[in-house]
Amino acid sequence: MTTAREIMTAGAECVNTDQTAADAARKMTDLGVGALPICGPDEKIKGVITDRDLVVKVVGKGRDAGTFPAGDLNQAEAITAGADDSAEEVLATMKDHQVRRVPVIDGQRLVGMVSLGDVAKALPHHEVGDLVDTLST
């Protein structure tokens, strides 16, 4: 059984809820990523912010990215995968919540991120095709 820990990209970093959308954008640029988990002062994951969120929910709405709190882009429920979850469980989570990236936690600690690309490399083509189809509707 392939686990999330085996297919994830390790070393994911958070943007804190009290940082700004501009801070998140700079961090994404520096790290060369399109999404970051949002973490609270308790270091628990509150959600994920994507480059698309920054464009659509901040810049596109005329908000000032330099003052807009990244924490205001939290989801109602943080979607995560456990480090020891199977790749199939991660796939099901992504399909159920229609997300392309999922933070991976070990207990409450962030240990990595699983992306659509990570899943695509780990699972048979028909399962990945189902996920892409789900995300595209």
Rank of each mutant, 00 (worst) to 15 (best):
R100I: 11
G107Y: 01
A65T: 00
V15P: 00
V48L: 05
K95M: 06
T93Y: 08
S86L: 02
T67Q: 14
H126V: 15
T2G: 03
A24E: 01
V114Y: 09
T17L: 02
V132R: 08
T20C: 04
V55M: 06
A120P: 15
R52W: 01
M28Q: 01
L110C: 03
P69Q: 02
T29G: 04
G11P: 12
E43R: 12
D72K: 13
R100L: 10
T137L: 08
R63A: 07
T29L: 13
A81F: 04
G112H: 10
P124Y: 07
S136T: 14
G71H: 02
R5H: 12
M1R: 08
G62R: 07
A120R: 12
E13V: 05
V59N: 04
R52T: 06
G62C: 09
M113R: 05
T20N: 03
L123S: 09
K121P: 09
V104R: 12
M1P: 10
H125L: 14
L54K: 03
V90E: 15
E89I: 15
A65C: 01
D118E: 04
V102L: 05
M1Y: 13
L135Y: 15
I105C: 14
K95D: 10
K121W: 12
L36D: 01
D96I: 04
I49L: 01
